[in-house]
């Protein structure tokens, strides 16, 4: 996101093309009110820009094919797994301010203290974050971001959004991502000190390669097991985010038994409740 702000022409171009697509009505057409099932599905998906999002996913997959996958393939060949874990550790350590700030925003004193201790230990004994020594000492890693903070504060997830390179997101999460990266991340401050545009391209490129490399086999598995990968990824993203927002606590399970209805319609009663229970944010 910093990349865009440092380059006004890129930003203008992005805004203009986004608007153009909106004008060309990329919005999914809402089903007629008489078709109640369809309306319910439409609202539950909360994906009014679905056609636009699907094309963004295609662009993302195209970028993967022509750029990220070859790079990741070389990266995974040249750097063995322990080395790649070191890179991930170092990135997490460098981005500690984002997690720490959001621990504090959420009033999570003990998690903030864990985050801070981890930073001190891993930056020194862990050799600039390459080794997660603190994790082995009983201070496990967790991530926080402003999207999660906003959820804890009661902000709804907003419409589903898919971005090339970044992947699945939503109105709330992308807002949080922008503020985290432009306002809190150390690189944003380094960026203001007149450092070259290409540094930031390299930084965000590195983040993307690390993230995509870590997620690759999981996403390939999801793609192989699904028919509509877009729909499968959308729900998997939301369920996983809901878990992060709950700080790992188990999802509340519905009171009725949705696997025990022998007459074949376990869902007519409380269908939406099942999923909202699974995906709901539960501020503590």
């Amino acid at each position: 996101m910093t990349v865009f702000l440092k380059s006004p022409s890129l930003l203008k171009h992005a805004v203009a093309s986004t608007l153009a697509v909106f004008v060309l009505s990329a919005c999914a057409s809402k089903p007629p009110a008489t078709d109640m099932e369809a309306v319910r599905a439409y609202e539950q998906n909360n994906d009014p820009l679905e056609p636009w999002n699907r094309s963004m996913m295609q662009i993302d997959q195209g970028l993967d094919t022509i750029f990220f996958n070859p790079v990741i393939s070389v990266y995974q060949t040249v750097v063995p797994e322990p080395g790649r874990r070191g890179v991930t550790n170092a990135i997490r350590n460098f981005r500690t301010p984002i997690t720490l700030a959001n621990d504090i925003f959420q009033g999570e004193g003990s998690r903030a203290s864990t985050t801070f201790s981890r930073f001190l230990i891993n930056s020194t004994i862990g050799l600039f974050g390459l080794f997660d020594v603190a994790g082995r000492w009983g201070l496990p890693y967790h991530s926080e971001d402003l999207g999660q903070t906003l959820a804890v504060w009661g902000v709804g997830e907003g419409p589903y959004l898919y971005f090339p390179i970044l992947g699945p997101s939503g109105g709330r999460d992308i807002t949080g991502y922008a503020v985290d990266n432009l306002g809190i991340d150390a690189m944003a401050w380094v960026g203001r000190a007149d450092n070259p545009f290409w540094w930031q391209v390299a930084y965000f490129g590195g983040l993307a390669i690390d993230a995509k490399s870590n997620a690759k086999s999981t996403l390939e598995e999801l793609e192989a097991s699904s028919i509509d990968y877009y729909a499968a990824l959308r729900t998997a993203y939301r369920q996983n985010r809901a878990k992060e927002i709950r700080n790992g606590a188990p999802a509340p399970l519905p009171e009725f038994d949705d696997f025990d209805d022998e007459d074949g319609d376990p869902f007519s009663r409380l269908e939406t409740e099942t999923e909202s229970a699974q995906t709901a944010a539960l501020p503590k």
């Binding site: 699904s226 028919i227 729909a231 499968a232 729900t235 369920q239 996983n240 878990k243 709950r246």
Partner: peptide, 16 residues
């Protein structure tokens, strides 16, 4: 990690 196999298949197949 919070992702239900059954719900994920359900959303996938509902869309199809």
């Amino acid at each position: 990690e919070g992702v239900s196999m059954s719900i994920t298949y359900r959303q996938d197949y509902a869309s199809v």
